[in-house]
Design a binder for these strands. Structure first.
Lengths: 125, 125
DNA sequence: TTGACAATTAGCTAAATGACTAACTATAAA
DNA sequence: TTTATAGTTAGTCATTTAGCTAATTGTCAA
């Protein structure tokens, strides 16, 4: 692997929000943009940019399904040791809180989640 | 390990010059500041700042010997997988060139190297 | 004890980065 | 076919970062 590729991977992982996404995708396999927006508590545009950086680094792949986009991990060859270290190294209260938040988020349908995100505080809370 | 610590490690490694230093220290065990200055071809003050960042991340330790400071790797618990991945992932022409440069640098005494660095183009070239 | 000097620290500048809002694209529903 | 909407892209701003030079610190040698 070229040095630049490696540095791109390290840069991609060295942002807190992106690291949280990677940890989340390791646990939850596949998440849509709106779910990630909900965990990170940042604007959709920000999530979009973070996901683009992870994709450019080759760490994530996306799949479009209607209006939704789903993301999952895509481990470059030989990167498993890195991910295993990362998982252990990131483990802690903060990641655990993300996981718990995601449990709740997964219990909601995409439709209701998106409704909530645009401020219609009806349905499930 | 706390998330912040992990992110500090990733940030420390995601700079090209710092990654080169880590690769060099994995191969050459111990290097002094002036030798690192010579490989990276940046000012001593810059090397000093990079080494401080690596030390704060817990990746490097230093030893003072008279006017010289020597650095070596200091692997945090459980980080061996990370270093092994990193070594493979960084391998390539650029790192190889650094290694060759370091072979030559190691063949020179510290005194002559420092003399060269302050512009006295006498002695070995 | 004074001068030389390797390394660090302080202060500066230019470039990179992450967040936001607003504009745009595409898909689905009315 | 018009409207609503999930996600992306463009543009702005504040913060961080890597490099430099200059000043400081600590150690050795005259």
């Amino acid at each position: 692997m070229a040095m630049e590729t490696t540095l791109e991977i390290l840069k991609a992982l060295s942002d807190k929000n992106r690291a949280r996404v990677v940890a989340a995708l390791r646990r939850f396999d596949e998440l849509c943009a709106c779910q990630i927006t909900e965990v990170l508590q940042v604007k959709g545009a920000t999530v979009s940019r973070h996901m683009a950086i992870l994709q450019n680094a080759g760490l994530v792949e996306s799949r479009k399904d209607g209006r939704w986009v789903y993301y999952k991990l895509r481990k470059p060859a030989g990167s498993e040791p890195l991910f295993q270290w990362l998982e252990k190294a990131l483990a802690g209260e903060e990641i655990e809180a993300d996981f718990q938040a995601l449990e709740k988020i997964e219990a909601i349908t995409r439709e209701d989640l998106c409704r909530m995100q645009r401020g219609e505080d009806c349905c499930p809370k």
